[in-house]
Design a protein around this nucleic acid. Sequence first.
DNA 1: AAAAGTTTGGAACGGCGCTCCAACCGTGTC
DNA 2: GACACGGTTGGAGCGCCGTTCCAAACTTTT
Lengths: 227, 227
Amino acid sequence: MATRTRRSDALSRERIVDAAVEVLDASGESGLTFRVLTERLATGAGAIYWHVANRDELLGAATDGVVAAALADRPSAGSPEEELRAVGLRLFDAIDDHPWLGTQLGVQMSRSPTGPTTPRLVEAFGRPIRDLGVPEPAWFTATTTVLSYVLGAAGQNAVNGRAGGGGLGRAEFLDATAAAWEALDEDGYPFVRRVARQMRGHDDQEQFLAGLDLVVGGIRAAHPPER
Amino acid sequence: MATRTRRSDALSRERIVDAAVEVLDASGESGLTFRVLTERLATGAGAIYWHVANRDELLGAATDGVVAAALADRPSAGSPEEELRAVGLRLFDAIDDHPWLGTQLGVQMSRSPTGPTTPRLVEAFGRPIRDLGVPEPAWFTATTTVLSYVLGAAGQNAVNGRAGGGGLGRAEFLDATAAAWEALDEDGYPFVRRVARQMRGHDDQEQFLAGLDLVVGGIRAAHPPER
DNA sequence: AAAAGTTTGGAACGGCGCTCCAACCGTGTC
DNA sequence: GACACGGTTGGAGCGCCGTTCCAAACTTTT
C-alpha cells in the first residue's frame, strides 16, 4: 500500500480536491486554474496530475465531494414529504454555500452521468418517493422529474448565492431584473410584464420549496395512496 | 446607417451567430474557437470582435437565436395543457437538434439572466399557465417551477441527442449506465438498484413529457379550476 | 479628389491545460 | 551501510486559447 509512512506534506487526491473546493468558493469556476492550485498546495502541476486525470475530473470530484457532504447522515425525518423537503433543502443550502455548484451539477451530470453523483442524488430523492406510496413502475419517472426540477432550480439560483452580479445585493438585482421585464413591449410580453412585480422581494428558498411542493403534489395526485 | 451598399462578403452579427451555431452543432461547446470561426468566415479575429463583445456573448446569442427560432410562430394549439406540452416539445426537439443547448440554457440563464432568453421562456410557458386558471398571485411560482423542470430535464438530456458518449448509440449507453447502477452495493443504493431496470429502453421524449405532465398536474391540483 | 469614418484581417500577448522528465524519497535487498 | 528500484514530486516547455491592437482597406461625406 502507498500510504504508510509518508512525508507530512504529502499530496493526496483528498487534499487536492479540498483545495479545489476552497478555490472554487473564493473565485468561481473560472478561478480554478492549475497555477492557483499549485501555488496554494506549494507544488507543481505534474504532482497534481499524478493524482487527478485532468481539470474536468477535478471539477467532478469537487462537485461530488460537496454533494456527498451535504447528503451525509440525514436523520431521515418524519413523513416522505418532509424527507423530500429536507433533502431538497440540504442541496439548496449547499448551493448557497458553494455558488459554483448550481451550474456544475447540471454540467457534470450530463458530462459524466456514470459518475457517483447521479446515483447519490437518485437514491436520496428516490427513497422518500418510494415511501410516498408511488407504485414501482412509476418510480423512475417520478424520481427523475423531481431531480430535473431540483437541478433546474439549482442552475437558475446559482447566480443568487452571494453576489447577484457586480457587487449588487440580491434585492437590488431582483429589482433591476424586474425593471427590465417591465420595460419589455406589451404586445410581445404581456405575461412577463405582469409577473415582474412578483419577482421583487421574493425569497429564493421559499420559492424553491414551493416549487418542490408543487412537483411532489403532482406525483401524489397522479398516484393517490391506496386505501 | 451602416447597411446600405455593402460588399457582398460583408460580415454581420447575424452571419457570425449563424456560423457559431453550425460550429456548435458540429463540435460542441469546446469546439467553438475563434480560430475555427475565422477560418469558416474567412476573416480575422478582430473583424469578429467588432461585431461581438466576446465568446460568452456569442454563446448567449447563439443560444437565444436557437430558442427564439424554436418558439417562433406557435399555432397556440388547443387547451392550456396541450399548449404546455407543445412548447415543451419544441424546446425538447431544439435540444435534440443542438445538443449543446441543454447545458448552455442553464449556464446562460444563470450567467446573464437579464438577457432576452429568460423572458422569452417565461412568456412561452407563462401564458398557458395563466390560461390554466391559476390565480395571479401564483403565476410566478408556477411558471418558474415549470421552467426549472424543463431546464433541468434539458441539462440531463443534453448528453442524449446524437452520440451517447464515445460512439455508442443511445440504447447501449443506457444499458451501460443501468449496469453500472446495478453494480452498486445493496446497502447504500437499494433504490438505485431497483430502478436501474426502468432506465433501459425508456424513451427520452416520452419521459420528458411524462415529467412535464406531473408538474402541470401538481399545479392544477394546487389550484383547482373554480367552478 | 481628398478627408473622415467604418470595417477588416492578422500579428502579438499573456494565460491556460497538459505533457514530459530529471530529481527525489522511502523501502526492500544483500 | 551501500545499492537499486518504483512510487512521487516540481517545474520547464508546448500548443492552443481568448483577446487586444493597429495598419490597411473600403465607404461615405465634404
